[in-house]
Design a protein around this nucleic acid. Structure first.
Length: 322
RNA sequence: AGGCCUGUGGUGAAAUGGUAUCACAGCACUCUCCAAAAGUGCUUUUCUAGGUUCAAAUCCUAGCAGGCCUG
């Protein structure tokens, strides 16, 4: 059975660095699982650029960092909306290709929803987005949407919890599913969850919140030195709207406020730090529910050796000897 | 030293003398195509001491703290 290694965890835990080291030892290639690294030109803010003197080059469909291929960066323009469905399709194709070349795919990511979708599948993904339906529904109030859904399918409405029933986005998707239900498009790639086709080992990196927050703050200063604000400026010049930047969240959301003059640099730094702290916390909340993760505390100096030992034991045979 | 102004959750604000409210932060959650998104719930307040009043964040007195002005 094919093997796939997953390295996950909240932001600023050094997932990519660890993954590259493992990739060097096991002849692996990285597959990013990050909902923002998929966008071209979001480099500093999404942490694509390696730090220090590490070499990297960007070719048409992948990056090569420190000699290791990294996939799933730059697969969409930031002006377009890229979503889980797109991600799963593209990432599955990339992973199959890596396996075909007898290399180890190392999925590196912090977007838990994408990772979950990639490994376990999302059944309703076969029901396509109906743009005109969405447009029509977007003008309706939450209450009207609730009524429409419960008229169309009381069961579907019952299944939702109070939070989702107050969430227009979820209501619209539920209506979309109910409307389209008999017409599920067959999509081979999306039919078989990766977890059923491969042997998956999940490594989780984390550390206590105060340490993590400190790491986030330090990294933010580094990113500012690397030209984070200039990156935002450049995106604007390339025609990315303030609204779209805000949708991209975190760094880019705050950059939009800064560049539009709504906040100053001091506010920018402190708000952004807060946002990233919150984000890291949300990420952990999601990962905590997955009991299949082997966790390591990155503040323990021995952690990387322990990860390596576990991964080697799991992988046990070098692939090029087969 | 004198004069003036201001004291409301952790922060910033709101409240004709009549249920102290909002935003942010914090905490706990939800999620089967926007997930760095979107949504839900919870916690925490009237500087101190008196007084007026049926009723005080609001009016009065004193104190304390901060700001501004004057010599």
């Amino acid at each position: 059975m094919n093997k796939v290694l997953v390295i996950l965890g909240p932001t600023a835990t050094g997932k990519t660095d660890l993954a590259i080291n493992i990739a060097k030892k096991l002849n692996g290639e990285l597959v990013s699982c990050d909902s923002r690294q998929v966008y071209k030109d979001l480099d500093i803010g999404t942490g694509k650029l390696p730090g220090g003197k590490v070499s990297y080059q960007i070719s048409t469909n992948k990056w090569i960092i420190d000699q290791i291929p990294v996939w799933m960066y730059d697969v969409s323009s930031p002006k377009d909306q890229y979503n889980v469905s797109d991600y799963i399709k593209d990432a599955v194709a990339v992973i199959k290709d890596i396996l075909k070349r007898h290399k180890l795919p190392i999925i590196v990511g912090g977007t838990a929803y994408y990772l979950k979708g990639l490994l376990e599948g999302i059944p309703t993904l076969g029901i396509k987005i109906d743009t005109s339906l969405r447009e029509e529904l977007s003008t309706m109030s939450v209450i009207a949407l609730q009524q429409k859904l419960s008229n169309m399918s009381p069961q579907a409405f019952e299944k939702m919890n109070d939070s989702d029933r107050a969430n227009p986005r979820r209501l619209i998707r539920a209506i979309e599913i109910v409307t389209m239900y008999p017409y599920i498009a067959k999509d081979e790639l999306l039919d078989k969850p990766l977890a059923l086709q491969c042997e998956v080992l999940k490594i989780g990196l984390t550390t206590p919140r105060p340490i993590l927050n400190q790491r986030i703050d330090n990294r933010l200063l580094t990113r500012l030195d690397m030209g984070l604000i200039e990156e935002g400026q450049k995106l604007l010049e390339e025609g990315l709207s303030f609204d779209r930047m805000r949708q991209l969240g975190l760094e880019y959301g705050q950059l939009a406020d800064l560049l539009e003059g709504k906040i100053n640099r001091v506010e920018f730094k402190s708000r952004l730090a807060t946002k990233i702290h919150q984000y890291a916390k949300e990420q952990m909340g999601w990962f905590k529910k997955d009991l299949d993760i082997n966790w390591f505390d990155i503040s323990q100096s021995s952690f990387s050796l322990e990860v390596e030992a576990l991964v080697l034991k799991w992988y046990d045979r070098p692939i090029n000897v087969t």
